[in-house]
Structures are given as C-alpha cells and as structure tokens.
Simulated scan of single mutants.
Amino acid sequence: MKNKKFLFAASLLLVLSMFLAACGSDKKVSGTDEKDGKEEKPKFISILTGGTGGTYFPLGGSFATIISDETGIETNAETTGASAENMQTLKDGDAEIAFSQTDIASYASEGKIMFEGNVVDNVKAIGTLYPETIQIVTTKGSGIKSVNDLKGKKVSVGAPGSGTNANAQQILEVYGMSFDDIEKQDLSFDESVAGIQDGTIDAAFVTAGTPTGAVEGLAATEEVVIVPVDQDKAEELIKKYPYYTIDEVPSGVYKLTEAVPTVAVQAMLVVREDLSEEVVYDITKAIFENLDKVTHAKGKLIKAEKALNGVGIEVHPGAQKYYDEKNIKAE
C-alpha cells in the first residue's frame, strides 16, 4: 500500500513540474522577461545592417547606441548581406530590427521577385530614412539623352534578382519597354562603370545614395550623363509602385552642370511585428529625437517628417503612435 501511495505522489509531482516548466517557457522576444503576467521590454535587441563598407553599418551603430542610451535596451548592430538577407533573418525570428530598401521590403511582404513563394509576413515598418537614387548612368559620347534612347543599346541592369534589376525593369515598363528592347547586361556597379569606360556597354542602372563612388570614379575621366526620368513617367511609376519617391541627382555631383530629375527607393528601418507597441514607440522616438548624435553624413537627410514617404509596407502600431503624436503623415 505504501508503495502505491509513493508512486501516486511521485507521478503527481512529475505532472506538476512538467506543467510549470511549460508555463515558464513562453517567451515571445529574445531576452524578454515576464512579470506579474505582463510582458516587459526585451533586455537586448539586434539591428541588422549591411556590409562594413556601406552606409547601413555605421548608421546602425549610431542607432544602436541611441536606443541603448534612451531606452535601456542593450542594442547591437550586426553586419549582414543587407536588405534581402535582413528580411529573411527577421522572418526567421533571429533579430528584431533591420535596414532594408523599401522596394525589397515590399517584395518580401508580397512574395515577389527574389521572394517568390516566400512571403515575409511578420515584419512592419518603423520608417524611411534617406533616398537610394536610381541613376541611369552613361557618358556624353554615347549620345544617350533619354530612356527611349536606351533601345538597342548595351545596358547593365544589375545582378538577376537584385533590387537594381527590378528598378530597371519597372522604369523601362512605364516607358513602354522591356529587357527585350535592350541588350541586357547583368553587371555589378564597378563592372558597369568599367564597361562604360572601356566601351563594352553604353549605359547602366545604378541604385545607390548619391554621390556613388563608382560613378565618381567614372566622372574623373569621362563626361558623365545621368539620363532623366520624366515627371509624368515618375508619377506613373509611383502610382503603380508606391515605394518609389521623386528624387534628383543634384547639380555639381559627377560635375553635372544642372540637377537631373529621377526617382528613388528609400532606405528604411523595419521591425518584427511581435515587438510590443510600447517598445517600438520608444525605439522610434529615441531615433528621431536624437538624430544630432548620428555622425554619418546621411544622418542629415533623416527626418521624422519624411519617415512615412514611400514606406510601401504596413507601419508598426508603435511607430504609428509616435507619428500620430507628431501629426506626421505621408506626403
């Protein structure tokens, strides 16, 4: 009889311990604690950036310091392969915040282009930061002055599946053209510039912040021409693909004598949607109210008033709360 009572008691304790262990294992965010049934802010978060030689990484370092100082959440910036990789990493739940181009974030949320059949549905926007300008680069000697002049020419459109490739395809589309109308070349920025320089290609699409180093190198030896995107075509493009915005390549850049109208996608910050509204509000407020602490030159272009322009995906409720308080709306 005593053995039966002992076995029953032992079984009861085992069931109870398993129940308590299951209850204690439910954590939504890395490093998050729960107290009195209420989820507390995470102890640490990661910001996914890009390569060490790009813009995302140093900006991410500044943002990490600001978030740590202003919210008390220990934050670090991680070097990555940039936009597409960042969106996938957030989908996998292995980080909390990331940099991405607006068009790449949109493709991820819709399962298109490089995310075909792989929808990223757990990521929301914090806000846009600064333009990544679409530059159609050629030289005066090419005779190319308009997008229509690209017909029949050897034109680099970036690597297959890249953001630049999609930008080129969409801009040609609003001009009634496709890749079939050009001699398409799939080259990197440096390869494109080298090709223009040695005459093996006529023009190249380059999506990057201006001035772009590779194009500056070309301007040192050639008279660079940036092909304009006409206003009516830009408006048509933005209507169909809302992650684009109006932009220009300024006078003086690449020795241009006047500004050239074009379009841009935006560099943006995105966040996993399971971060709480309160935490994302605090992060958004910390960044936009401490931009004077950002030392990178691009920091001067970042403004809360422009953060909803060209977002292209749904804004996280925490970020939206901050914009509502400041009466900020998309232009």
Rank of each mutant, 00 (worst) to 15 (best):
Y175C: 01
G61P: 03
I246A: 02
E277I: 15
G161M: 11
S156A: 14
S109K: 12
P131G: 08
V215N: 00
F189V: 15
Y244G: 05
P211H: 12
S11R: 06
F288A: 04
A64K: 03
V279N: 03
K239C: 02
N309R: 05
M268W: 09
T212A: 03
D230S: 11
I226S: 01
V271W: 08
Q88V: 14
Q266W: 05
V224P: 08
S83E: 00
A219F: 04
I144H: 06
L48V: 12
H316P: 13
A22K: 09
G61R: 09
E235N: 14
E248N: 06
K35F: 11
A77Q: 03
K140W: 07
V229Q: 00
Y322D: 04
V15I: 15
S68C: 06
G72W: 11
G50A: 09
M1C: 08
C23N: 12
E110F: 13
A307M: 01
E277V: 15
D121V: 12
I196D: 00
E258N: 09
G127M: 04
Q266D: 03
E78V: 15
Y241P: 00
Q197V: 13
A203N: 07
S106L: 07
D181V: 15
E110Y: 11
I246H: 07
G60Y: 05
V249A: 01
I302D: 02
V174N: 01
I283M: 06
I302R: 06
L59S: 03
H296W: 08
V120K: 08
L187H: 09
S68Q: 11
L301K: 13
D149C: 04
T295H: 08
Q135M: 11
P250L: 05
I134C: 06
K285M: 02
V29G: 04
I171R: 01
S30A: 11
G143C: 06
S30N: 11
Q320L: 08
L12G: 14
K38N: 11
D69I: 11
V270R: 01
E173T: 14
V270F: 02
K240S: 06
A84P: 05
G299W: 07
V157Q: 02
D274F: 10
L301N: 05
S106G: 11
T245D: 01
V280Y: 00
V174H: 00
D103C: 05
Q88D: 00
S25C: 08
V315T: 15
P211M: 05
D324P: 02
I283C: 10
E110G: 04
P228A: 02
L218D: 00
K184I: 15
V249N: 01
K303N: 06
S192E: 01
E70C: 13
